[in-house]
Design a protein around this nucleic acid. Structure first.
Length: 691
DNA sequence: TTCGGTCGT
C-alpha cells in the first residue's frame, strides 16, 4: 500500500489536471459498494481512497487545500489517516480535524480509533469543552470542535503543535468556523509550513478558496511567484459521495398553507409511490406536532398505513429515538422534523423528502440589540441539503412546496453566515483576547455590521473587560476571556469570588450552560410546572437551579429522584462536571471559591455585577407582566418557563432573551434597585437620566 | 396572560 503514496519530491500524480485559473479540480466519479468487508477493505472502497495520492500531493504543495466532499465520501475519517500515513504526524506533530458539533467529534474519533486499531484517547483522541481525551506525545490525530481550537489559540496563537489543520463542514459557516478561518489565514503568514485543509460543500468552496488565495499579494523580490513554496494559491479537490440521484418536484402555484400541503403530499406519496420512508421539514415544534396530528388523523380516516413521528431538539430522548426505531411491518414511516434533520441528525432509509421551504432563523438587530427568531425562506444551499436526505439508500424524490421560479429568483444562494445574524459580545471579547486589536480591520470571511461590533464593544466595556482605548483590562478582561462562558456570566463568576459566593455561582453557571435541567415535557406542562414549584425560590430561577442541584446531591445523585421530579439526570451529571471544571479554573486564576452559606442576597448581587445591563423594571398600569429594560426602555415579558412568570416582581434581571411573538426574557432573578447603583454606578449614573 | 430553529467555548 505504502508504495502507492505520492512522496514529497516525486512527480505530480497523473490524476491531476490544471484548470485555466490554476486551481486543481477533479471531477466526481460514480461509486459502487458491496456487502461485508474488513475495516481495511471498507476503507479502500470509500470514494476518498482513490484520491489519496493526489490529495497528499496537493497538501504538500499548497498552503491551503479545499476539499469538496459529499456525504459519505469518507473525507472526515480518512484524510487524517492518510496524513499520518504520509508522515505529517512525525516528530510529535499533531493533525487536527475540527467539527462544528461535539457529537460528531466524539463519534468520528471513536470510528477512526477503531479503524487504526488503537485505544481512543491514544494515537487518536478528541477534545470538546471540559473533556480532553488526548495523550500528549502519543496522540497523532485530534478531533475537536472548532470552538476548542479557538480556545487553544489563546495559549498557543500560532498552533505550533499542529502540522495540518483540517476544518470540516466549513460550509455551515458557524461563528467559530468563520473566526477560525480568519485567524488561520493570519497564522499561515507566520507559519508557511502549516497546511490547511478546508472541507466544504460545493457552493461555498469558491468563496473560501478566494479568501485563502494570497498568491497575488505583494512580496519581496526573492519570493517571486514561481519560487514560493508551498503555493499560496489554494487547490480544490472534489471527492464524490456515496449518494444517489434525487428527483426534484416543485409546486405549480405558490403554496398558501404548507402544513396542509405537506400532509396532502405525504398522502399522495403513500398512495402512488413504492415503499420508503418520508421526511418532512417544518420550522418549529408547534408545526411539527400539528403536521403529525393531521397525518395521523387522515390515516385513521382512510385506514391507511402511515406512522407519523415528530423529531426536534426539545423532544425527550426516548421520543427522539422513536424516529430512529422500527415501526410495524407493512407500514410507512413519516418523520416530521425541524432543521435538526438537515445537519445534526442523519436518518437512515429516507427515500422521499417534503420541504416546506422555510426554517426558523436567528436575526440580530444591533440597533435594538435583540436577537429575533423568525420564520424565513431557506437558501438554495439549504434546499439542496434537505433534498440530499432522500438519496442516502437509493434514488429518491424531493417535493418542494414552492415554485421553481421562487427557488431560482426568490431564495438566496446561501444562508447568511451566523456571524452576520448574531450578537457578537463573546466573539469580540475572544478576538481581543487573541490579540486582534482592531476588530474593524480584522480579515473577516464575512464582515458583521459595524453597528453589531460597536454594540459588542459597548457590552464588554460596560463589564470592565476592555478600557476606553478598547484594550483588554488586566486582570479582569483577561480573566473573563479565560472563562469559557458568556462574558456577562464570566464577569458574574469573578464578582462572586469577591463577594464570597463562588461555590454557589459555579453551580448556577453550570446549570445555565446545559441545554435544560428539566426533562422535556411537551404535553405534560402542568406536571412540569408542579415539579418546578417543589424547588422554586422566591428570588427566581437562578436560586431555583441551586435548590435543584442541592436536592440532587442530597438524594445521593439518584436517577430515580430525578425521574420523580422531572429533572434530567444526564444534565445534572453534566452540571456537576462543569461546576468542578469552573471551580478549578477560578482557582487557577487566583480567585477564591467560597460558599456564602445560604446568604442569598450576595448571590443576587453577584448576578447584578455581571448582568446589570439586563435589569428591568415592572411597568405599572400597562399590560400585565410587562417590563421596561432600564438601559434603553425596551419592553420585555417574563418567559412562561420562569418560576417568576405571573409573579411580576418590581425589579428583575435576566440571563437571556429572544424576540418571538413577544420579546421574552428567561432565567430571571429578583433584584433591589439600589444594587444597580451599588454594583454598576458607571453604567447607571448617566443611563438612568434618559428615563 | 402561557412557550424554546440548531449549535458552541
Amino acid at each position: 500500500m505504502a508504495s502507492q503514496f505520492w512522496k514529497p519530491g516525486a512527480e505530480r500524480p497523473p490524476l491531476l489536471t490544471d484548470e485555466d485559473d490554476g486551481l486543481f479540480v477533479m471531477a466526481a466519479q460514480p461509486y459502487y459498494s458491496s456487502g461485508y468487508m474488513t475495516i481495511e477493505r471498507q476503507r479502500q472502497t470509500l470514494p476518498a481512497f482513490k484520491h489519496r495520492t493526489p490529495l497528499l500531493y496537493l497538501i504538500e504543495n499548497h498552503a491551503t487545500t479545499i476539499v469538496i466532499g459529499e456525504t459519505g465520501s469518507g473525507k472526515t475519517t480518512q484524510i487524517p489517516q492518510y496524513l499520518v500515513e504520509g508522515g505529517w504526524s512525525e516528530g510529535g506533530r499533531l493533525i487536527a480535524c475540527t467539527q462544528p458539533r461535539r457529537i460528531a467529534v466524539q463519534t468520528v474519533a471513536a470510528r477512526v480509533a477503531e479503524e487504526m486499531h488503537v485505544t481512543l484517547g491514544q494515537e487518536v483522541g478528541y477534545s470538546i469543552r471540559f473533556e480532553d481525551m488526548t495523550t500528549p506525545g502519543v496522540t497523532k490525530i485530534k478531533y475537536l470542535t472548532d470552538g476548542v481550537l479557538l480556545r487553544e489559540m489563546m495559549e498557543d496563537p500560532l498552533l505550533v503543535r499542529y502540522s495540518v489543520i483540517m476544518v470540516d463542514e466549513a460550509h455551515e459557516r458557524s461563528i467559530s468556523t468563520d473566526i477560525l478561518l480568519g485567524l488561520l489565514k493570519k497564522v499561515q503568514r507566520r507559519r508557511p509550513e502549516l497546511r490547511l485543509i478546508i472541507a466544504s460543500a460545493t457552493l461555498e468552496a469558491r468563496s473560501i478558496a478566494a479568501f485563502f488565495d494570497t498568491s497575488a499579494e505583494r512580496r519581496s523580490q526573492s519570493q517571486a511567484m514561481d519560487l514560493v513554496f508551498p503555493s499560496r494559491k489554494p487547490a480544490i479537490l472534489s471527492i464524490e459521495g456515496k449518494t444517489f440521484t434525487v428527483q426534484i418536484f416543485y409546486t405549480e402555484e405558490p403554496v398558501s398553507d404548507y402544513v396542509r400541503d405537506a400532509v396532502s403530499t405525504v398522502n399522495s406519496i403513500h398512495k402512488l409511490e413504492p415503499p420508503g420512508d418520508i421526511l418532512v421539514f417544518m420550522t418549529g415544534q408547534d408545526e411539527v406536532d400539528e403536521t403529525v396530528q393531521l397525518i395521523q388523523h387522515e390515516t385513521e380516516n382512510r385506514h391507511s398505513d402511515l406512522v407519523a413521528l415528530p423529531l426536534y431538539a426539545g423532544l425527550a430522548r426516548v421520543d427522539q429515538e422513536h424516529a430512529f426505531g422500527p415501526i410495524p411491518r407493512g407500514k410507512r414511516k413519516v418523520i416530521v422534523a425541524t432543521n435538526i434533520a438537515e445537519t445534526s441528525l442523519t436518518l437512515e432509509g429516507i427515500v422521499y423528502v417534503v420541504d416546506s421551504g422555510f426554517s426558523k432563523q436567528r436575526f440580530y438587530n444591533p440597533i435594538k440589540d435583540v436577537e429575533a427568531l423568525i420564520t424565513a425562506p431557506i437558501s438554495r444551499a439549504s434546499a439542496q441539503q434537505r433534498a440530499g436526505r432522500a438519496g442516502r439508500v437509493r434514488p429518491g424524490k424531493c417535493y418542494r412546496l414552492y415554485t421553481e421560479d421562487d427557488y431560482t429568483n426568490l431564495m438566496s444562494a446561501e444562508t447568511v453566515p451566523e456571524i452576520q445574524r448574531s450578537n457578537l459580545t463573546s466573539t469580540i471579547l475572544q478576538l481581543k483576547a487573541l490579540g486582534i486589536d482592531s476588530i474593524m480591520r480584522f480579515d473577516w470571511l464575512a464582515s458583521p455590521a459595524p453597528e453589531a461590533m460597536v454594540r459588542a464593544l459597548e457590552t464588554i466595556f460596560a463589564i470592565g473587560a476592555i478600557d476606553s482605548d478598547a484594550k483588554l483590562t488586566s486582570p479582569t478582561g483577561f480573566q473573563i476571556a479565560e472563562i469559557p462562558l458568556h462574558p456577562m456570566l464570566g464577569k458574574t463568576l469573578i464578582a462572586s469570588c469577591a463577594l464570597g459566593c463562588a461555590l454557589e455561582m459555579v453551580t448556577i453557571a453550570a446549570a445555565l450552560s446545559v441545554q435544560s435541567i428539566w426533562v422535556p415535557s411537551r404535553g405534560r406542562q402542568k406536571e412540569l410546572d408542579e415539579a418546578k414549584l417543589r424547588f422554586a425560590a422566591s428570588e427566581g430561577d437562578h436560586i431555583t437551579y441551586l435548590n435543584v442541584f442541592e436536592g440532587f446531591l442530597q438524594s445521593q445523585r439518584s436517577a430515580q429522584w430525578c425521574h420523580r421530579n422531572l429533572i434530567n439526570y444526564q444534565a445534572l451529571k453534566k452540571v456537576e462536571d462543569i461546576r468542578s471544571h469552573l471551580s478549578k479554573l477560578l482557582q487557577r486564576l487566583g480567585l477564591a471559591v467560597k460558599s456564602c452559606e445560604r446568604d442569598i442576597k450576595v448571590i443576587q448581587k453577584a448576578i447584578v455585577a455581571g448582568f446589570f445591563a439586563n435589569a428591568c423594571q415592572l411597568k405599572i398600569s400597562v399590560e400585565q407582566g410587562c417590563y421596561k429594560r432600564i438601559r434603553d426602555g425596551e419592553e420585555v415579558f417574563i418567559h412562561p418557563s420562569s418560576v417568576l412568570f405571573r409573579v411580576s416582581p418590581k425589579w428583575i434581571i435576566y440571563h437571556a432573551n429572544t424576540v418571538t411573538e413577544r420579546h421574552y426574557v428567561r432565567e430571571i432573578t429578583v433584584i433591589e434597585s439600589p444594587w444597580l447603583m451599588e454594583l454598576a454606578p458607571h453604567f447607571f449614573h448617566h443611563k438612568s437620566m434618559e428615563y
